[in-house]
Design a protein around this nucleic acid. Structure first.
Lengths: 193, 193
DNA sequence: AAATTCCCTTGACATATATCAACGCTCCAT
DNA sequence: ATGGAGCGTTGATATATGTCAAGGGAATTT
């Protein structure tokens, strides 16, 4: 159950066996069925989740009622609404399962306690958030400087399995374009070949 | 010289006087003249900078030669290229001074040593990066879901002094629009009043 | 198995924003 | 002080992408 999580830890910090055993105790395993919510807009985000299995997405709904996907989370990724998690303010995000999922949840109190008992985890999360910031900044620059087609190509290049794993209209939402536009982009691409 | 930095520390962690004195030793004061670079594309980012005084910006230049401003940094803010700083890969960013600046630089080695000697600083930077990620995510969603006018209004709302501090074409670059479009948006807004 | 819903596609048209060009103003630098 | 560069503005036009509408096929529900 915790193998994948430990693999991820090992990439960034070195934990002893005892620390790993201790770390386990802070996480709450949870299964989620496809289409179930982990978080709904208006709720306070109590957990950040590590994905052992399955796929989730986080998204907001704008004033016009349009969904904007912030993130997908596949096996080995983390997902949550950091703002709500930190501040205890109601979330503006929704998070739901695109497939049946197995998660490891970390509550705020558990996180604090874990940081106290295992200071290396503070480091792990700093590095994790740093990488996340780097990726988000890249995506931001892309969204300001690239065409929809370029962004789509970059997305597929960086995650080639994504078209198989995620419905097309969700990729469109992630890219900030309409499903129609993505459909046409793919048409063009297939003609060029 | 360090007052502002300590104010910022105090907002997120509690340091003793000794820790503050110790912390000082890790920072390198540096003055930068208007238009001088702190970092140029292709160089490896050795420092992350805290702004005591002045204004800077970080930006990339895309294949078409267009500048895209990633961030402004005013007094009390931090700026750097985290990716290059962490990985020691050549940076794709430029950072330069929009006014004469006084900075406090933190090198990677200094950072590591500081984390070792003052573990609370690890926490400080985690929280700092978290907030940065939250802000960047918001901006990303805005860039995918809002019109140029909405984004401009939000920017000014969140930082009302920015039009006085930053030339208009740089705000346009930050917003991901052309100077012409921003000029027209402002015209419209002034007519509505 | 039938019915329904959802998803993807395609077409016609609308709109936001970009591009290109010209002009006046301000602020440096000589 | 003078000349030049850069900045903001405005107009005409181009382009990427959105909107609306319709149809077909796959998947899910009854």
């Amino acid at each position: 159950m915790f193998e994948l999580l430990f693999t991820k830890f090992d990439e960034k910090v070195q934990l002893t066996e005892e620390e790993k055993e201790l770390a386990k105790t802070f996480f709450l395993p949870k299964k989620l069925r496809k289409r179930q919510y982990l978080l709904q807009e208006g709720d306070i985000s109590k957990y950040v989740a590590f994905v052992e299995k399955g796929t989730l997405r986080s998204y907001t709904v704008d004033e016009r009622g349009v969904e904007h996907i912030i993130q997908f989370a596949f096996e080995g990724w983390w997902i949550g609404d950091m703002y709500s998690f930190i501040t205890n303010e109601p979330s503006t995000y929704n998070i739901d399962a695109l497939e049946d999922c197995e998660l490891l949840l970390l509550s705020q109190q558990a996180e604090e306690q874990m940081f106290e008992k295992i200071p290396k985890m503070e480091r792990f999360f700093r590095i994790l958030v740093q990488n996340s910031l780097i990726a988000t900044q890249r995506r931001l620059v892309g969204s300001l400087s690239q065409t929809a087609e370029e962004r789509y190509n970059d997305l597929v290049a960086s995650c080639p399995t994504i078209p198989q794993r995620v419905p097309q209209h969700m990729m469109a939402s992630f890219l900030g374009i309409t499903p129609e536009t993505l459909s046409r982009i793919r048409k063009q691409a297939s003609l060029k070949k």
